[in-house]
């Protein structure tokens, strides 16, 4: 998917640059300095008063469309914004629980209510650890 998105993006950029370059080259042609017939659809004020060939216009539109699709496809996966989905992911997978930096990542933020670091029974923990070591030696 990532490769397809990148290809679409590159194609879009190439087409867009080509269209822009063609438009510029076309504007240098002596024929383009001729007065243009007034547009029949557009009002007088927003009439661009140039006569670009249709293929350049189409190419521009096509390249912009490609770029739009490519950018959407290459965006990172959306994060869950529903509480239960987010919480479910924390319970389900180890990967979602990884602590990336202080305050980012980590498992259930409410687990502290059951671990209670403020009331840590350090002596009990030490005894438990010593017991674990003794068991390992045996």
């Amino acid at each position: 998917m990532a490769i397809a998105a990148t290809t679409i993006n590159i194609l879009g950029i190439v087409f867009l640059s080509h269209a822009v370059y063609s438009a510029y080259e076309h504007s240098l042609l002596p024929s383009s300095s001729l007065p243009t017939p007034p547009s029949s659809i557009l009002p007088h004020i927003i009439d661009p008063k140039i006569n670009l060939p249709l293929d350049i216009t189409l190419e521009t539109l096509f390249s912009v469309f490609l770029l739009c699709v490519g950018v959407v496809l290459s965006s990172p996966e959306l994060k869950p914004i529903q509480w239960n989905v987010w919480a479910g992911r924390l319970e389900r997978s180890k990967e979602a629980r990884v602590v990336k930096e202080v305050g980012v990542g980590g498992g259930n933020p409410y687990a502290v209510l059951e671990e209670r670091p403020g009331f840590l029974d350090i002596r009990g923990r030490r005894k438990e650890f010593a017991g674990w070591v003794r068991e390992g030696e045996r």
Binding site: G106, P117, F129
Partner: peptide, 19 residues
């Protein structure tokens, strides 16, 4: 990137605590 140093060791297993 996971950083084991940032995980609070209060409720982990003895093996991770010694690590």
């Amino acid at each position: 990137m996971a950083n084991p140093l940032l995980e609070a060791p209060t409720n982990s297993s003895p093996a991770t605590a010694i690590d």
